[in-house]
Structures are given as C-alpha cells and as structure tokens.
Nucleic acid binder design. Structure first.
Lengths: 335, 335
DNA sequence: GTGAAAGCGCTAACAA
DNA sequence: TTGTTAGCGCTTTCAC
C-alpha cells in the first residue's frame, strides 16, 4: 500500500501538501493538486483505514453478534444489517455466539477494545435462560451503544428492533379458528427463547378467547428427533386439524407428517409456520407462513445504531421499533 | 476506554514504563509492575486494537466475501471460518456480494485499504459467468493473500479449498444404478456455477458408463418457480425412478413432488440431494444427502490463509485442499 | 529501573 | 501556496 509519505517524496512536496491536495483543500495550488492526484491515481492510493480510525477515534465498523448463522431468519437479518451498514460507509465484524453466554461475553469484550463503534446483537439462548445482562450494561456504560433485535433483554436500556410475536400467533390462530378448525395445536422448538414464549402466549390467548377449543402444545427440545416427536404427537392426538408452528422447521415437518399420515392439506388440516419464502417451498402444498421481514429488521437495527453513534448524547431516550409480521397464505390453509 | 497515558499519569510514571510493566518486561521493578497491573485491572484496561494495528501493520482481521448468506452451505462455511479465525486471534469482516461482480469488486477494494490482512471468498455467480479475475489478481499483487473456497477461479494463483463435486455426483449416480434404477434424472438450479457444472459432469459420466440409461437433465433458472418446473418435469418424463439433485432445495422439492404424485419413496423412486442435515428433515422419508462438510471447509480455508499471512514469501507454492463429501443414506434411497 | 523519543499513517492548527 | 508540528495509542530502542 502506498502512503502519503511515499507520494510526498516522489513529488518533492510535504506530506501535508499531499494530504490537503487529495482532500480538495482550497489552500493548495491548482497545478499541485493535479500532479498529486495523478500520482495518487497511478499508484492507486487509498487512505489507510487504520490510521484514520486512530486519528478520528472512530472505526466505522459495527460489531454484529449472531446466535446462530444457520438460522435462516438470523442470516437474513445479517444480510439486512450488512447492506444498510455498507450504504452508510460502515463495515461489519461478525461474531457467532453459537447460543453460548460465554462466547457472547467474549465477543463483546474482544471487540470493545476499539475494534468497533457499536454493536447489533440478538441475545443467545443461554443468556436468555440464565437471564444475564451485566455484560450488556457494562458495554453500554463503556461508551459502546448496543442495538438488540428479535431476542432482546428487556431490562437493558438500549434501542431494540422486535417482531410482534404475540400478535402474529394470535392472529394466525384466530385465522384457523375462523376456518372452523376444532383442534388447533401449537408446536415449538424454541420454548426457552423470549420470542418463543410470546408466540405461545399469542396462541393461548386466541384459543382461550375461542372458548370451544382447548390448547394443545408440543414442546420439542433441541436434542430431540423432531420428526419422531411430531409423528408421535399426531398419533397421540388424532383429531388435530390445525397447527401453528413457532419456528421454521416444525411447520414444514408437521405438514409433511400430516401428508404422510394420509391427511389432505388443507382439506383435513391447516398448517401455519414461521418460515422464510424458500423454506415454504419445502412442502406440497407450500406452507402458509408468518413472515418476519428479516431484512427490514436488519436494516432498522443498523439505522438505529448509526443514528445513536452519531448523537452520542441522551442514552435515556431509547427506541423500540416493532416490525410487523405478515401472514402469507399459501396452500396449507383454506382460502 | 482507558489509555496508557491515563494510567501513567495517575501512577506518576512514564507511558513506556506502564507499557513495559503490562507486557511483563524484565526491565521494570517488581513493585512497579504490581502497581501498574492493579490499576490496569481496576480500569479494565485493554490495549487499543487500532493503535496496535497501525504499529504492527497487521489488523488480525480477515475479510470474508460470501455470495449469499441465505445459502445454508455458505452460511455454515462462514461459521467454520469464524470459529477457526477466532481460535487464532483473528476477527472476520463479512461482506455479502449477493452474487454480484460489482459488489464483489467493491468489497475487495474497500477492505484493501488496510482493513484486513487477507481474504477468504467464494466467487460470485456473475463473476463466474463473466469469467472475470482481474480484481482477484490485483488484490493478490497488492500484497493481500486470498483463499478461495467452493466456487473458485482456477486461473488465479492462490490457495483453494474445494469439494470433490465430480466424484460426489458420480458416486451418487452409481449408487442409484446399483439400485437398478432405470431412469435417473439430474436436477440443478446452479448451472452457471463451476460446481454445478462439475456435478453435472459427474452424473453424466456415471450414466454413460452404465450404458443402458440415457441422461435426463432438468436445469432450473433462479427466476423459475421450482415446484412448478419439477412437477412439469415429472409429468413429462413419467418413468423417472431416480433423482440426483445438484443443490439443496431441488432434492427436497423433487422428493415431496414424487410423494405428491403418489409414488412410494424409496420403493418407486430414489432421491439424493446436496443438503445440510437440517434440510434433510424437510421430507418424509428424510432425504439421502451428499454432505459437503461445510464447517470443515471453512476451517481449512481459515487455516490456509493464516498460514499464508504468516509466511508472506513464496506466492508460487499455492495449495488446493480437497474436502471429500460423504453420502449420508437416509430414507430416500434403498438400503 | 525508568524515561524520552521515534515512528506506524493520517489530519489539522499554525507558521512561514 | 506550502511546510512544520503535534497528536491519535502503542511499542521499542536508546539514554540516563
């Protein structure tokens, strides 16, 4: 990489002259500016990012901590963050907490050494179970703003971007009730997550309001064989004619299992799941899905953080942005 | 963030004394070391990363350019890279090229300003179609090593980590031939990618060797409705009793479509696809899959790059590591 | 045993 | 119009 020093030497001018010329300073003579720019072009000069960061005490870099990159929703949020960040001249450093509290803490610690100007993160499962929030508070007190998305720690004062999880399942369940379904079950493999709990509550409320149906819930653990669990669940509860799935895979598996049992979809049973568009293709008929607009969530998170990093003051006016889900009706529900 | 300067001032010693004390230099008196370390601990001092980077001319950061983060395989490779990089004290800056040549070039350019010490990337689709490689060469000539994985540009001299795509489909096809399948089709939505072509060739070779079967290929475009295309394909070619799918979704869709047509799997038809474990759950029976060991690919790529960054010399001894696929038999093929 | 000074690459206030 | 200097935070050589 060429430096100002090298350009200056070759041009027989001082370093600051070169610097000013390249930054279109009024001070420098037209002729000099031209000479400097030509040589810079020739050598493909780029101001050294590290030096700029040191000088400005700003890295123009955002630390993103994702619990699980294989989760399509989270991956898509990351996509949204990256895009929006780039648009504003920011790069992102990605850490994957792998749902581990320790790794989450480490990542926060590690990047809080001047590597980034702020964080965007979704709380790890272990962190939510243990309900730890000190490391978040410490980071924020250390001067690095955090924006949380999807799985958030409510007791931490920071900007947040969340989904209307409660309403989403509430409405979806209502939808099946309207279809005259009599045995609507709820299947989830994310019981430990804040969002999983909210989704269950939304389902429960709709069921209770209905009056004539009683709730029927299947909670799957990470280690379980999802297919087996769901199969057994269907066998045990024979009359199921509706399923609300809280996560991306349970819906697909439930639908395919129903078909495997000889049920007609959506004649005999309706299924609604949280899933991305591409996942909804993994069944025939396609899965009716609650879409979370992951990209938009990522974009919102990035915007909030960038705003916060610009106006460093007022840490007390934290915002919570709710990105509404939408129900995309495909073939697994009645029209 | 506390700096050495502040610690020095508070302790009434010089900056260099503090620095040495914290780095366990022999020069400094025991008592002083103790005082310094205590205060540093108290203030949670961390050496500023940016300053270190500038000093050492090394950022300990790897630039990763991924074509599409929603692709499970690529996401998992990213996971492997991140893990291995972290293990060696490196962070990763992630850019998503979104299969675009322009974005790929930009990312390379942007990070080549001192932000990273090297790159790991998988070539964007557009780049492969247009067969552009100048930007890679320029980067390498500029002193930043590149490691390519999966989709590689063969004409660029750099370390590579690839999958034995040809052998994978060759063996998988052979497998179906052994099952006495008579009409084995090949379905792909990645025709434009180097890996897609290799996979098709592997299939073709096995089919030709067999002699009695003639090749039957369905190429799906990005914009097509995959389900429709595959349905039509099955209708048109009624006798299909075997499918090799080149990508993650085609296998699942083909399997579910076959079931939808009333075929018994694997009695009437066998299906093999490239897919991750979690995707293989999206059908009943589970999809028999060619597993690419994505995490391992990522780890290998990171190792190669870190090695290369340490021994800067010898750019001519480039290595290509082949990570072998394995065929995981699930219910969609005969035992 | 401790400190001063230079230098990594850059910008900007100030001097000439 | 151009150059000198200081400083961002750190390490390291060389004086003291």
């Amino acid at each position: 990489m060429v430096t100002l020093k090298q350009l200056a030497k070759e041009l027989n001018v001082s370093i600051s002259t070169v610097s000013k010329a390249l930054n279109n300073s009024e001070e420098i003579g037209e002729e000099t500016v031209k000479r400097v720019k030509e040589l810079a072009e020739l050598y493909n000069y780029k101001p050294n990012k590290v030096a700029l960061s040191l000088k400005n005490n700003k890295t123009k870099t955002i630390g993103v901590i994702i619990p699980n990159i294989l989760n399509r929703f989270l991956a898509k949020v990351l996509f949204g963050i990256e895009r929006e960040a780039n648009k504003h001249g920011y790069n992102i450093i990605t850490c994957i907490s792998n749902e581990s509290l320790v790794k989450e803490k480490e990542s926060l610690q590690l990047l809080a050494n001047g590597s980034v100007d702020g964080f965007i993160l979704s709380v790890a499962e272990e962190t939510q179970i243990k309900n730890e929030i000190e490391h978040f508070k410490k980071t924020i007190n250390g001067g690095l703003p955090i924006v949380m998305f999807d799985r958030v720690a409510h007791d931490v004062m920071c900007d947040k971007v969340i989904v209307d999880d409660f309403d989403a399942t509430y409405n979806a369940t209502k939808n099946l009730v309207k279809e005259k379904r009599k045995h609507v079950a709820f299947i989830s493999n994310i019981n430990d997550l804040s969002v999983g709990k909210l989704r269950e509550r939304g389902y429960n409320k709709a069921i209770l309001e209905c009056g004539t149906i009683s709730p029927l819930v299947l909670k799957i653990k990470k280690k379980d064989d999802h297919q087996k669990k769901i199969k057994a669940f269907f066998k045990k509860n024979s009359g199921i004619d509706g399923v609300i799935a809280a996560d991306s895979s349970s819906g697909i598996i439930a639908l395919n299992t129903a078909i495997n049992f000889g049920l007609k979809v959506p004649k005999d049973i309706s299924v609604i799941g949280f899933a991305s568009k591409s996942d909804s293709f993994h069944s025939l008929p396609k899965l009716t899905t609650i879409r979370q607009h992951a990209k938009e969530i990522g974009e919102n998170a990035a915007q909030l953080l960038i705003l916060r990093m610009q106006n460093t003051g007022k840490p007390d006016d934290v915002k919570t942005k709710i990105v509404k889900t939408s129900l995309v009706k495909n073939g697994s529900t009645l029209k």
